[in-house]
Nucleic acid binder design. Structure first.
Lengths: 294, 294
DNA sequence: TTGTCGGGTGGCACAGAGTGCCATACGGTA
DNA sequence: TACCGTATGGCACTCTGTGCCACCCGACAA
């Protein structure tokens, strides 16, 4: 049984596997933000062991990054990475599932954080806005270490293996979002539910595509500027351009202004009245809102 | 002139590499549908050699598929595949870049066909419709061999490696579409060009997401029914739901009905009047249209 | 102090993917 | 018959990833 080493971890995040291609090694534990594993009483020794473990992982990731940047990805062997970090080759594979993963050490943690964002969302928030907050969490992961992100971007552009790996990672977020939207679209909508799964998938992919675009532009620019703001702007653009069907929540910029449009239905016609100081996007949004309630 | 570099194409589709993760072996040649490699005078012997080559490739793919289906992907070695196909292990890697690729033998050819669809598109066709025709080409690849597609789907669901590979393959189509849209959005639009790259990327991802959704639903249903029609319906849905900003070409179903809403701007307010027999989506669309012209 | 228990580590061995290299076979051509 | 280009077979080799076992070390109890 190949899972012998794996058998330990009783219930750790049974929901979605942290796997990104292979099974996780037994001792592999994504650095859970608040997920104290219940059976671990968080003793002083346990805490120190975790810190030590985290330190080794960081060292390995740093060594890998440095070697990849100087020698190139293919030309760097796991032995070299381990040697540079001062551990044995076998230890490397106890911290990372593969050589590729050493360059994306944060996706697993981020996936957990994004899931937490979705789980703890205010039920009154529009699901699409929740998802936007979720992908923003991903963006922050990159934005927190601009230099490393830029260097990693350079690598992913020239090493197909790494590019595919990152594409797969992002696809994991997208699946999270699709599932979330699928489970939150039914409430309070008279849409014909037959197309809801389609819309959920398309919407999730649109949000992720916006993130990808903003992120790549930021990375190409060398990691300068406020990405998060740029992402918000991208959300506004896609909402106002073809975001009338869904995404009526959180009005972006002029959130404090009163409802810019009202609606009345009389006989054969529907009449909508809107203030001209509101943007076309806002007018559309609130007309849609009114139509939805009608 | 975006078509300049594209018009050339004297040699083998220099635009995009057929690579899907590694470099292609020297002798690897995707089976170009009409791309006669100019220097190959298409002799009788050459034709027979190509046919022979294609035959070996088919045999290998069939053997791989069968072994994967019975033994599982991980448990099957390349040696076994080669043995079953009656060739040497080394020959396998002359036909496929990797073990995974043996299960997706058609993506490279399809990528070429999709590119051909884009290149030969009527310039008067809306770019989004062109892209929709492009992704339809991909769908056809699956639809032409339903049983195999269904079986492959089963495998990709349970083998993470294969799932990631397929995700990466689809991402290649998406990049094609993004580039195409980016090069065809400027013409005849008064959109602020700053957001065009964003919209191109989001639109491409939406089209691909629709394809993915329809395809998976069809696969889950066992490969029964007219997928292509379902895909067209999905296009209609996303166009009518939030497809007002772009994709104004070929209006889907009720294209013949008169404008369902009119708009007048008077002093401080905008008044929109719409027929109640029109769907909310249609009302929104035409209001937006009117707002855009105002 | 001693025993022992558990988690992290080092080192070894092994299977398998993917590649370089060279010899060989086959078909077409001079 | 000799030559040539191409596909193949086979060998050797590197590297990734995993199973297995011995070892170390801090914690805890007798």
């Amino acid at each position: 049984m190949p899972g012998a080493e794996r058998a330990a971890r009783p219930v750790g995040w049974g929901g979605f596997p942290p796997a990104t291609g292979r099974e996780a090694p037994a001792c592999y534990v994504p650095h859970m933000p608040q997920a104290v594993n219940s059976d671990a009483p968080e003793t002083a020794s346990g805490r120190r062991a975790a810190a030590q473990r985290h330190r080794v992982r960081q060292d390995l990731a740093a060594a890998a990054m440095q070697l990849f940047a100087t020698q190139g990805y293919e030309a760097t062997t796991v032995d070299e990475i381990a040697a540079k970090a001062g551990v044995a080759r076998r230890t490397f594979f106890r911290h990372f599932r593969s050589k590729e993963e050493a360059i994306f050490p944060d996706h697993d943690d981020t996936l957990v954080r994004v899931q937490a964002v979705l789980d703890s969302a205010d039920p009154r928030e529009h699901p699409l806005d929740t998802v936007c907050r979720g992908i923003t969490e991903v963006l922050r992961m990159y934005a927190q270490v601009p230099e490393m992100s830029v260097e990693r971007y350079r690598l992913t552009r020239e090493v197909p293996t790494l590019r595919e790996r990152e594409i797969a990672s992002v696809a994991r977020y997208e699946r999270l979002f699709t599932r979330y939207l699928l489970g939150h679209f039914d409430e309070g909508a008279q849409r014909d539910g037959d197309d809801d799964p389609l819309l959920a998938e398309v919407a999730a992919s649109a949000v992720v595509a916006a993130h990808n675009h903003v992120l790549r532009r930021w990375l190409r620019a060398g990691g300068k500027g406020d990405v998060e703001q740029q992402l918000d702007h991208a959300f506004d653009v896609i909402k106002s351009t073809f975001g009338t069907g869904i995404g009526a929540g959180r009005i972006p910029s002029r959130a404090t202004s009163p409802t810019p449009a009202t609606l009345s239905r009389q006989g054969e016609v529907v009449v909508a009245v809107a203030r001209t100081d509101a943007s076309p996007a806002e007018i559309l949004r609130s007309i849609e809102e009114a139509l939805r309630q009608a």
